[in-house]
Measured scan of single mutants.
Amino acid sequence: WEITFERNGKRITVRTTDHRLLELFEKLWRNGADERELERLAEEINR
């Protein structure tokens, strides 16, 4: 799966075969987690 999240013109794409990681990322994104931390998390998930 691949999903791109966008907020205030900032886009972060997450790619993984584990839908649970996408759900976790989406919850953090929707709850306003720090964008720098989300970028780092996305990099780890995308590996």
Rank of each mutant, 00 (worst) to 15 (best):
R36G: 13
R36T: 14
E43P: 01
N46G: 05
R47N: 14
E44Y: 15
E43R: 09
A33E: 07
D18Y: 04
N8K: 05
G9K: 03
N46H: 06
F5S: 00
D18K: 04
A42Y: 05
V14D: 00
E6N: 04
L41Q: 03
T13P: 01
A33I: 08
T17G: 10
R11Q: 12
E39F: 10
E6Y: 12
L21C: 08
I3H: 11
T17K: 12
A42R: 02
F25L: 05
A33Y: 08
L38D: 00
E26A: 12
T16Y: 07
I12M: 06
N8D: 11
W1Q: 05
R11C: 08
E43M: 10
I45S: 02
E39I: 12
E43W: 05
K27A: 13
N46F: 09
R36A: 15
E37L: 13
N31C: 10
R11K: 14
I3R: 14
R40V: 10
V14Q: 00
R30L: 10
K27E: 10
R20M: 11
E37G: 03
R20S: 12
E26C: 08
R30G: 04
F5M: 04
E39A: 09
H19F: 15
D34L: 15
E2P: 02
R47T: 12
N31S: 15
D18F: 05
L38V: 02
D34Y: 09
L24A: 11
N46D: 04
R11A: 12
L24E: 10
K10D: 02
F5R: 03
E39P: 01
E37P: 01
W1M: 09
A33V: 10
R30H: 08
F25W: 04
D18P: 01
W29M: 06
E44N: 06
L22R: 05
A42V: 08
H19E: 10
R36F: 15
E23K: 14
L28S: 06
E35Y: 15
R20F: 12
E35I: 15
G9Q: 03
I3S: 06
R40L: 14
L22A: 05
T13I: 10
K27W: 15
E6H: 08
L28T: 05
K27I: 13
E43Y: 06
G32K: 06
G9I: 00
E43D: 13
E44I: 13
E43A: 11
V14K: 00
D18E: 07
R40M: 13
T4I: 11
E2W: 08
T4A: 06
T13A: 03
T13N: 03
L41R: 02
H19T: 11
E2I: 13
T13Y: 07
L21E: 03
T13M: 06
N8E: 07
W29E: 01
L22C: 04
N8Y: 03
I3V: 14
R15C: 04
G32I: 03
T16D: 01
F25Y: 02
K10Q: 10
E26P: 00
R11T: 12
N31H: 09
T4R: 03
E23H: 14
L38E: 01
E37F: 13
I12P: 00
T4Y: 04
L24D: 05
F25I: 05
E26L: 15
H19L: 15
E43I: 09
E39N: 06
W29L: 04
I12G: 00
R40Q: 13
R20Y: 11
N8Q: 05
T17V: 07
R20K: 13
R15N: 07
L28P: 00
E43T: 08
I12L: 08
L38S: 01
N31V: 05
L38G: 00
G32A: 04
V14P: 00
T4N: 06
N31I: 06
R40G: 07
E39G: 05
D18C: 09
R15S: 07
L21Q: 09
L21D: 04
L21Y: 06
R40K: 12
W1E: 04
D18T: 04
I3Q: 11
H19R: 15
K10Y: 14
G9H: 03
F5N: 00
E26F: 15
F25N: 00
G32C: 08
N46Q: 05
I12E: 01
R36W: 15
E6C: 15
R11P: 05
E6Q: 08
E2K: 02
L22G: 02
E44A: 12
R30D: 05
L28N: 03
L28E: 06
N46K: 05
I3E: 04
N31K: 10
H19K: 14
E2C: 12
T13V: 12
R15I: 09
E6T: 10
D34V: 15
G32Y: 07
R40Y: 08
L22F: 12
R47G: 13
E6R: 03
L22Q: 03
N46C: 09
G9F: 02
A42D: 01
L22I: 12
E39R: 07
A33F: 07
R36S: 14
E39L: 13
E2V: 10
R15W: 07
R7V: 15
E39V: 12
F5P: 00
E39S: 10
I3T: 06
I12T: 02
R7N: 05
L21F: 06
R20N: 11
L22K: 05
I12F: 14
V14S: 00
L24M: 13
E35H: 13
E6V: 14
L41A: 05
E26N: 08
E35K: 03
T16P: 02
E26H: 10
K10L: 15
R20L: 11
E6I: 13
A42L: 12
G32P: 02
R40S: 11
R47I: 10
L22P: 00
V14M: 05
I45L: 06
N31P: 01
K27P: 00
R47Y: 08
R15D: 01
A42G: 02
W1R: 07
G32R: 04
L24V: 08
A42K: 03
W29S: 02
E44T: 10
R40F: 08
A33M: 09
L41M: 10
E23C: 15
E35G: 06
D18R: 04
L38C: 02
R7T: 09
N8S: 06
L41H: 02
R40E: 11
R11M: 11
E37N: 04
E43K: 08
W29G: 01
F25P: 00
K10I: 14
A33R: 03
R15Q: 06
E23Q: 12
N31F: 05
R47V: 09
R7E: 02
L21P: 00
R15P: 01
R11L: 13
F5L: 10
I45K: 01
R7D: 02
E37Y: 13
A33S: 07
W1V: 10
E26K: 13
A33D: 03
R11I: 11
A42T: 03
T17M: 13
E35S: 10
D34S: 13
N8A: 06
L21R: 04
G32E: 06
I12D: 00
G9S: 03
E23I: 12
T17N: 15
R15L: 05
A33P: 02
E23F: 10
R36I: 15
G32Q: 06
R7Y: 13
E26M: 15
E39C: 08
N8H: 08
E35C: 08
R15M: 07
W29Q: 02
T17E: 08
R15T: 09
E26G: 03
V14F: 08
R11W: 13
L38K: 01
T4H: 12
I3D: 01
R7L: 13
L28G: 01
E35T: 12
W1C: 10
E2A: 03
R47S: 14
R11N: 07
R30P: 01
R36D: 15
K10S: 10
R7C: 08
E37M: 13
E23N: 10
R7A: 11
T16M: 04
R20H: 11
L22E: 01
I12K: 00
T17F: 15
G9Y: 01
T4P: 01
H19S: 12
N46S: 09
I12Y: 14
H19A: 14
E23D: 13
N31Q: 14
N31M: 12
R15E: 02
D34Q: 05
A42M: 10
I12R: 01
I3Y: 14
F5V: 15
L28Q: 05
E35L: 15
G32T: 04
V14N: 00
E43V: 07
E37S: 10
F25T: 00
L28M: 13
T17P: 06
F5A: 02
D34N: 10
E23S: 14
K27V: 12
H19C: 12
R30V: 08
E37H: 05
V14E: 00
T13Q: 05
I3W: 13
K27G: 06
W29Y: 09
L22H: 02
E37W: 09
R30I: 07
G9E: 03
T4C: 05
N46R: 05
T4K: 03
E39Y: 10
T16V: 09
L41W: 08
T4D: 04
T16N: 04
E39H: 08
R36P: 09
R36V: 14
L38M: 07
R30F: 08
G32D: 04
E2L: 05
E44L: 14
E43S: 09
I3G: 04
R11H: 11
K27Y: 15
H19D: 05
E35R: 03
E39K: 06
D18L: 05
E6A: 03
T16E: 01
W1D: 05
F5E: 00
E37Q: 11
G9V: 00
A33C: 11
N8C: 05
E23P: 02
I45F: 04
I3N: 04
E43F: 06
N46A: 09
L24K: 11
F25A: 01
A42C: 07
N31E: 13
R36M: 14
E2M: 05
G32V: 03
L38P: 00
R47L: 12
T17S: 14
R7P: 01
R36L: 14
E35N: 08
I12H: 03
E26I: 15
R11S: 12
R47A: 14
I3M: 15
T13E: 03
L41D: 00
A42E: 03
T4M: 07
E44K: 11
T17Y: 13
H19I: 15
